[in-house]
C-alpha cells in the first residue's frame, strides 16, 4: 500500500521570541517525502521550540511554515500515556479521535502490536505496569497507527538504554522505508543522527540558528557500525560542529584516517 506522496515541509525564515529572548533566528530548511532529517545541537538551542512550531503546538510569530503533508504525527520526549487507560486504549486514542469504531481500532492495533514488540498480555495492562521501554513502544504504536506521512520526533527514546534505543529506531526506520515517511527528528547524539538520517541540520544556540547542513550520501541500509563511527568522528573534527557544542578546537592532527568523506557540508 505504498502510495505516491508528494508532500513537503518548508520552513522559511522563521523567527521566534519568548518574551524578549530570541529563541530562533531565520530558520530555513525543507523536507520531502521519504527523507529523514535530524536537528542536532546543544541543549537549549531551540530544537523543541522549532518542532512545536512545525506541529502547531506553538503559534508562528514570524516567517512561513508550509506543510503539505496530509497527516503529521508527533512523538515527545516522554511516552505521555494516559495513566487511567490500558495500553490498547492508549494506542488507539488517535484513531478514536478520527471516529474509527472500537472493533476496527482494536483490529488495527492488534496487527501493529506484534510489529513493535508488544505482547497481547501487555495490551490489557495499565502504563504503570510496564517498563519504560514498553511504554515507548506503546507511544510509537500510537503514532504509527495514524499512518502519518510526516513524523516529528522529539528525542522519543532518549531515556532508554542504547540497545533498546537502537532497536526502536530500526523499527521506526523499517516503517519509514515501507511507507515513504518523512521524518524530522531532534537528537543531541551526533552518532544517532549519522546512523539514521539523510540530512543533519546543525544548530547553534543563543539565538537558535542553523549553522551547517550535512548531507549523508550513503544509503541508510549500508551503514554499518564502522562507517557510523568513522563518519561521526569526521563530523566531530569539523570546526563548525565543535563550536556549536562548545568543544575545544583540535590543534594536533588526528590519528583517525579521515578520507571516506561520504558527506557534504553547506555552512
Amino acid at each position: 500500500m505504498i502510495q505516491k506522496k508528494n508532500g513537503y515541509l518548508k520552513v522559511d525564515k522563521v523567527d521566534h521570541d519568548f518574551v524578549r529572548t530570541q529563541v530562533l533566528q531565520k530558520i530555513t530548511f525543507s523536507i520531502k517525502a521519504g527523507e529523514v532529517c535530524a536537528l542536532v545541537g546543544p541543549s537549549g538551542c531551540g530544537k523543541t521550540t522549532l518542532l512545536h512550531l512545525c506541529n502547531g503546538l506553538l503559534d508562528l510569530q514570524d516567517g512561513v511554515i508550509q506543510n503539505t503533508f496530509q497527516n503529521t504525527a508527533s512523538m515527545f520526549q516522554q511516552p505521555r500515556l494516559l495513566p487511567w487507560k490500558t495500553c490498547l486504549d492508549n494506542m488507539t486514542l488517535g484513531l478514536k479521535a478520527r471516529g474509527f469504531k472500537k472493533q476496527e481500532r482494536n483490529n488495527k492495533a492488534l496487527k501493529l502490536a506484534s510489529l513493535v514488540g508488544l505482547q497481547l498480555s501487555d495490551l490489557e495492562k495499565f502504563p504503570h505496569q510496564l517498563s519504560g521501554g514498553m511504554q515507548s513502544r506503546v507511544a510509537l504504536a500510537r503514532v504509527l497507527l495514524l499512518e502519518p506521512d510526516l513524523l516529528l520526533l522529539d528525542e522519543p527514546f532518549s531515556a532508554l538504554d542504547i540497545g533498546l534505543k537502537t532497536e526502536l529506531y530500526l523499527l521506526l526506520l523499517e516503517q519509514q522505508t515501507q511507507r515513504n515517511l518523512a521524518v524530522l527528528m531532534i537528537t543531541h547524539d551526533l552518532m544517532e543522527a549519522v546512523r539514521l538520517c539523510d540530512t543533519i541540520l546543525l544548530m547553534n544556540s543563543q539565538p537558535g540558528r542553523i549553522a551547517a547542513r550535512f548531507n549523508l550520501t550513503r544509503s541508510t541500509s549500508l551503514r554499518d557500525d564502522a562507517w557510523v563511527y568513522q563518519t561521526t568522528a569526521e563530523l566531530l573534527q569539523q570546526t563548525v560542529v565543535r563550536k556549536s557544542f562548545e568543544l575545544p578546537v583540535v590543534t594536533n592532527s588526528s590519528p583517525v584516517d579521515l578520507r571516506s568523506c561520504e558527506w557534504s557540508c553547506e555552512c
Binding site: 503546538l57 504525527a73 505521555r80 500510537r142
Partner: peptide, 13 residues
C-alpha cells in the same frame, strides 16, 4: 500539561 500537548498533537476534538 504534557498530556494536554499530547492530546492536542493527536488532534482530539
Amino acid at each position: 500539561n504534557q498530556l494536554y500537548e499530547m492530546v492536542q498533537a493527536l488532534h482530539l476534538p
